[in-house]
Nucleic acid binder design. Structure first.
Lengths: 352, 352
DNA sequence: AGTTAGCACTCCGGAACCTTGAGTGCTAAA
DNA sequence: TTTAGCACTCAAGGTTCCGGAGTGCTAACT
């Protein structure tokens, strides 16, 4: 009992001791870049830890019993566990700063002529994939966080009208609506005028939840049209919920050695194909800085082999998500910086 | 010389003879479903060709010298060549009709609530991938084929306006434009009024090519705005050219045995990632019925291992493309029917 | 003439086996 | 506390061997 306690204390202290940290860090760095187990000979040779293989083996052993490393088989070197990566990310990792040329590179790739938000996000995902050699993902802004600014009803054809919805941040959504009978232009104008009055200053979320209540009893404009708008409110105030998800860099990630195993590739594809689920996962993440989830920390079982880094960018008051998905073996320090930089880049782009 | 000629004639005749056709067809059917070379024992046993292995070997030999089949190595069965598939597609394949339940299945998967064209196309690509076990691809309508119907300029913010462009088929595109100074609402109205007059009835393609000529010398509306519109015309009358490309079913296609080879997967990913190039490839295809390109028939080298089936759907006068990409070993007969059915389904959906 | 049985031949693919080398834990000496 | 030495383990790669599948050719059969 008592000795056990002592032992644990000792282990804990070891985990934090200078040597243990340095060795763990070195193992991780090496494993991340070489993708093969790291043994004591490498550590003794290549690093100026100034220790013999035998001493290092001792420490490795400790790190293993602490659960930071494991051996795939007896006579192999060590591989970091998820817990090991977690410790690295929390306590070991030094903040990485991108070189100016890398930043320049990223900027030049993202800055395309188009101001179209979706196009930029597609491109962003692509760039994230490219520079990280992993899978880049981007999520469109969470429209529902926005505040209603204005809506416009335009006649398109006999029985079609276009609804244009603007929120304060300057984001626009358009929906084509079908109606059963044609409606005169002045009716349209009146309808939209009143709606604009009623909805002014509300958040999209509020509108979605309360639209019916707010305007049901009012008689104005074309009643059928109003009814239609109410009925389809869920549909078109809802698209926000299911934000669009883009990804890029599939080429790169397939090259990663972890995907020699064919099955893994399939599970990843499944994940991407679902889209919706992944989108939800991404949309409810920490808002501040870079959020990191490593392997088995994920709620979803099929994400257990992957790590996810995300950050939030802002368009006015509305936030969206950019991130990177890859095998747990990834360059956390650098990729954090990349994701962070990218989020700021996008925010700046839409700031003024 | 003479005998050579005779020989060739004989071979040509053989190629068309009943037996040769039946055997080629059987080989292809078998290979497509089993993904392994087909030998004479299988053919003699499993089919009521009523022939001994020896006789069949003779015919196989002929088919090989004609270039319809080949052997991966001496002691293996035969595999169809691209030429073999081509012959099959042109002369052997019986038109396949989908069962009512399959049609029903497809319809139920595609018919989602949303009328949003992009959402439907995403879903369509997904379904195509699902039922074909290959990669489904869809391309948005070729906007530039459309005829200008109307444009609308809406003020969004101080220095932002929204341009809404409608074409006759009921398709809508919106672009957010930035301007340097704010413009009064009446200026906007006048500008759009005149533009509507001038551009009425022109095709988008014409507008893109001649916009400058058509309105340069005219003084109306806000001259800066007009100038901006002219300047950015290429940008926003151009998006049509680079139509959006969607695909679905990556999960399925990764399962295909041809992708055991890891390199192939990479080339495929590359292809998808490019997007643009593939989009162009798809957009300039035959308009009538199902267009089939097999392996080495492709102009692009990196498509040499894949076949592509496409058909055109129509939204009013504007056409878009749906199709399937997969290894040359695919069920041409059935997939033709699928692609064809899908194209009609979409056309009908937007017909009225 | 066309078809078929018989036969010798080729060659891929898997199983069994061996060797090598990398890495380990333990112990005893520094 | 560190380190050299040593015996041990085990994955990975190479070699060899064998069986089976399929072929082409020839001679006999209808």
């Amino acid at each position: 009992m008592r000795s056990n306690n002592l032992l644990e204390n000792k282990e804990l202290k070891n985990a934090l001791d200078k040597r243990g940290r340095r060795i763990l860090e070195t193992v991780i760095n090496r494993y991340v870049s070489a993708a093969e187990p790291v043994g004591s000979p490498y550590l003794a040779r290549h690093r100026r830890l100034g220790l013999s293989p035998a001493s290092i083996r001792n420490t490795l052993n400790t790190l293993e019993t602490l659960g930071f490393l494991y051996q795939p088989h007896t006579s192999a070197g060590r591989i970091p566990t998820d817990k090991g990566y977690r410790f690295y990310v929390d306590s070991l990792m030094k903040p990485w700063s991108l070189s100016e040329s890398e930043k320049e590179h990223i900027r030049s790739e993202v800055k395309i002529e188009s101001r179209d938000i979706d196009e930029i996000l597609v491109q962003t995902a692509h760039v994230l994939g490219l520079v990280s050699k992993q899978l880049g993902v981007t999520l469109t802004p969470r429209f529902q966080q926005g505040v209603f600014q204005r809506m416009e009803l335009l006649p398109l054809a006999e029985k079609k009208i276009l609804l244009v919805l603007t929120i304060k941040s300057g984001l626009v959504k358009t929906v084509v609506m079908e109606i059963h009978s044609s409606i005169g232009e002045e009716k349209l104008l009146e309808t939209s005028r009143v709606l604009n009055e009623r909805l002014n200053g509300l958040s999209i979320r509020e509108i979605r939840e309360n639209l019916r209540k707010r305007i049901r009893d009012l008689a104005f404009g074309d009643s059928k049209l109003v009814q239609l708008i109410i009925d389809s409110a869920h549909m078109f105030f809802d698209f926000s919920e299911a934000a669009h998800l883009y990804f890029g860099g599939t080429t790169n990630i397939v090259r990663q050695p972890e995907f020699r195993d064919h099955l893994k590739l399939q599970t990843l594809m499944n994940l991407l194909e679902e889209g919706k689920a992944l989108g939800e996962l991404l949309s409810r993440r920490g808002q501040e800085g870079v959020a990191i989830t490593i392997g088995s920390e994920h709620a979803r079982g099929d994400m257990h082999h992957y790590s996810l880094l995300t950050a939030t960018y802002r368009v006015g008051k509305v936030g969206g998500t950019v991130g990177i998905i890859g095998p747990t073996r990834m360059r956390y320090a650098k990729l954090c910086a990349v994701v962070d930089y990218m989020a700021h880049l996008l925010s700046d782009m839409w700031s003024e």
